[in-house]
């Protein structure tokens, strides 16, 4: 093994666009300029109207946890070293269903969360869900702290 192990860095061209769109304290997702659909995962065209006119924009970061899981075995070595790893699915108020890293306090279904897009230690964008019991600005700070601590505090 050479070099430091990082979270998975592989992305498609559209995944790299998500990384390029990362901006402080926000959730940046792909938006359709023709019909205003917000979509995730990123696509080449709009899932609703098939327009190719798509822009990454800051969207409303509020959502609700649908289900969570503690991954005890992961094929990726970075996660395997940190198992069990908490992740889950979040239904965003602005439409899409996203898979995200979950802070430990929001594993229950129905938990209201803020979701942010941030760069992890691989340099690529990931989504992180933080409890809405924190005010938005506090949640932004917590999300940044988690990323800087290599997400170690999440599990």
């Amino acid at each position: 093994m050479t070099g430091k192990l990082t979270p998975p860095a592989a992305r498609t061209r559209l995944g790299l666009e998500m990384t390029a769109a990362v901006a402080p304290n926000s959730l940046q997702l792909q938006c359709c300029e023709q019909c205003t659909t917000v979509q995730y995962p990123p696509r080449e065209v709009c899932r609703c109207c098939l327009s190719g006119d798509l822009t990454w924009r800051a969207v409303e970061p509020a959502g609700t946890v649908m289900a969570s899981s503690a991954l005890h075995h992961c094929l990726d070595p970075w996660f395997e070293q940190r198992a069990p790893w908490l992740m889950g699915s979040v239904k965003l108020d602005c439409g899409p269903l996203v898979l995200a890293h979950l802070a430990a306090e929001v594993t229950a279904a129905g938990s209201p969360v803020w979701v942010f897009s941030l760069k992890d230690a691989s340099g690529q964008a990931v989504l992180i869900a933080i409890s809405q019991s924190l005010a938005l600005d506090q949640a932004q700070i917590r999300a940044q702290q988690l990323i800087l601590s290599d997400l170690q505090e999440m599990t």
Binding site: P8, A10, G15, P42, S68, G88, D120, V126
Partner: peptide, 23 residues
């Protein structure tokens, strides 16, 4: 999978089905 599942440790079907199972 590459952009939106693998970065969360969800390689392979186990993670997706664990969410479906939990729900």
């Amino acid at each position: 999978t590459v952009d939106a599942a693998y970065p969360y440790g969800a390689a392979g079907p186990n993670a997706a089905f664990s969410l479906i199972t939990r729900y």
